[in-house]
Design a protein around this nucleic acid. Structure first.
Lengths: 152, 152
DNA sequence: GTGACCCTTCCCATGATGGGAAGGTCAAGG
DNA sequence: CCTTGACCTTCCCATCATGGGAAGGGTCAC
């Protein structure tokens, strides 16, 4: 099977297959005399594994770990679980970060007329974070400002 | 004020200030005879605006829009609101995507012993997505597979 | 043998950011 | 006046996973 067919069958683009090979995530394949890469069904199976792991958001580095755990029939399931749960933590941190952004924006947008007039708490808060809208009740969502943190 | 002081005062790194200038997000500054960039308090104010917008996850492109709306005293608040709500939608799509990943993984991890034994539904599902764990009750979280979508 | 595809490698771009090198500038203290 | 250290300048490279595209060669069916 050529790379195009392997790509089709696995859902991983030919470009990415070559890339994964170049970084060592998958081994170098056999080549035809003309230099074409040749893939077996087993290779396609591996590629599918990789694609599913990507779909779950694992980094290539983590996938390398997962693939080698997969290959290792004496693996300890706790090692797999650890990789997975670490990733879950990363995902949840990211989710919380995005939720904070969305929450702040929705709060601001709720108080923006959204008509032809120029006054707008969104722009005003960006310009001057001292909680100008709804003075009093609502706690400052923009106080310490979504931490300058992990810009991932 | 030199770039280092402007960076300090605004929370935007000197590197990024130069970058923002290079892509036209902020105008070219005055320079001293020696070629040093010089910043005013007004410039720092703009940089702070930009930083807050970044903290809320706006792209540089959106920030360019926001800055020009900010400058435009005849702006319509609906234009600001539109930019904000579009971004909220993007954030929420992203959040949903990450939540699906995290949900799937937590589900799988819940059924993984996480001990020294090799059998592990996480790796097995990656290898063969035909819902091997808890056969029966639980709906396939891995059926159509987290869509190959937006790998942002 | 020719056209329609396929494959190869190589380079470039993305987005926002940091690292670092090589060299110029400035202010303070000796 | 000169040195030193902190700052500035530009330029290039790296990140991460992915796609685009060019230039050149291979394969196959008609």
């Amino acid at each position: 099977m050529n790379i195009g067919q392997a790509a089709e069958a696995s859902g991983v683009s030919a470009k990415m297959i070559r890339y994964y090979e170049s970084i060592g995530l998958i081994p170098k394949t056999v080549r035809t005399e003309a230099g074409y890469r040749v893939y077996s069904d087993k290779d396609v199976h591996t590629l599918r594994f990789i694609r599913r792991a990507r779909d779950l958001g694992f980094s290539v580095e983590q996938i390398a770990d997962l693939v080698s755990l997969w290959r290792d029939r004496a693996r300890a399931s706790k090692d797999v679980k650890r990789v997975a749960l670490e990733h879950v933590e990363t995902l949840e941190r990211k989710i919380a970060e995005l939720q904070e952004m969305a929450g702040t924006l929705k709060h601001l947008a709720r108080h923006c007329h959204g008509d032809g007039r120029p006054d707008c708490p969104i722009i005003e808060t960006l310009a001057n974070p001292e909680e100008i809208d709804t003075p009093g009740r609502t706690a400052s969502r923009f106080g310490p400002l979504a931490k300058p943190a992990a810009r991932t």
